[in-house]
Amino acid sequence: MDKRIITCDYITNDDIILFIKFLEERFNYNFHIYSKATLKLRLRIILNKYNLKNIDELISFTGKNKINAERIIYDFTVTYREFFRDPVFLRQFRKRVDIFTKPLQEIRIWIPECGNGIEAYTFAIILHETEAYRNSAIIATDSNDVLIEKAKAGIYPSFKWKKDYQNYEDSGGKLELSELLPVKNDIIEVNRKLREKISFSKHSILSENIPGQFNLIFFRNSLIYFEYPAQISILQKLSKCLFSKGVLCLGEKETFHSFPGSENFKSLVKNERIYQKLR
């Protein structure tokens, strides 16, 4: 299942730009500020998967019909996620969440760039064991309609469910996971109550409008997909969306210190990317 092969001929930067422009004009997606090396990797995997020789063939294949377009855009945009990635972080987060949410009547939580929803469900399950869960409103957004529909449906292949369950246990999770993420006939179907707890909607992190103010934002391993200047503007936007004392969670290898405005945050947990806005 994980076997991906990336052999194919040289892809130039012009090729990438050509395909990005095609996606923009035809489908209104903006990939200009994404890491070009990562986009090239995905293009190589796609060319190989669909047995296409070059970008011209890819563009005509994608433009041919709606089914092709959906498959290619899905493969090009979906950020691969696994349940309960980085259990050490999740354990630290669960331990502290009630401390900083205690004074709040309502806890507004945002998961931007939620992709196919796995990261949103991961956090909902972690929060499930905390006091915060009851009073929380969870909003998860993505710019891609296809992904939003997948996220709402909450159905995933189960080929690595044992690892998922193990990671949950390693995070210190105490709930009966077989109720929340039941595995049946090679799929995981997320528990209905959990699905209803999260409101999935379309929104691009790059757009001008912001979806409101939040107490908590989960944004793990999304920043790394962008070029550096875009990372700065995204962090500034997320910072604006946080209430005073709000908390931002980033991925294990995402650093915060170089962005203008980081002085208005403090690190809540040593070695973990959990930052609290001071004012």
Binding site: R4, N13, S35, K36, A37, T38, L41, N221, Y225
Partner: peptide, 17 residues
């Protein structure tokens, strides 16, 4: 990954090989 401006990029895309 290495970008054409000689900086690193990390990603969490699916495993390869």
């Amino acid at each position: 990954l290495i970008e054409e401006n000689y900086t690193f990029s990390l990603n969490v895309d699916a495993k390869v090989n």
